[in-house]
Amino acid sequence: MNHSAHSPLSAAALWRTTLITLLLAALVVVCLVLPAEFGRDPSGIGARLGLLDLSAEPAASAQENVAANDQQRHFSITLGPGMGQEFKVVMPANALMEFEWHTDGAPIYFDQHGDPLGDSSGYFMSYSESSASSVKGRLLTVFAGNHGWYWENRSGNPVTISLSIGGDFPLMEAKH
């Protein structure tokens, strides 16, 4: 290449520039890129800047597997510290859903509830409300509507929830 024959920097300045650049890059990756892109926040700066929200997956965007008749689906939901998220499926009345969910470690606050089809008053029926790191059970619906969970991460670290649900009705995620 036709570089100017001499370097614009002395050897010492070149070393310094290269090392400082490496150090800065490591800082940017750890403090900004990791929390914003991957939801990992070893420095705690990502949470302070609100970057963790950027990597929160919308519910059910990920891995969905549909089995044959009796449908079974898996969802993965990641919540940054302080974040809450609703996840519901549309169910007819008298339908049975088998569900199982667990976090990647820490317990998380949840409220399992349902709201009737076509209801705009904001009414919902709460089935159970607690904190847990894994819950397994069945839900038999009384009314048609959206049934599911509200999770809230009250810890200081991101939590990933793995949810499996199955039922003999068409599994469709509810819009909220």
């Binding site: 650049t21 800065l24 890059a25 940017v28 890129v33």
Partner: peptide, 13 residues
């Protein structure tokens, strides 16, 4: 160079 290192770190993470 900084941008190159950040990109590399990002992808390695």
């Amino acid at each position: 160079m900084l941008a190159g290192f950040v990109l590399t770190g990002y992808q390695l993470c």
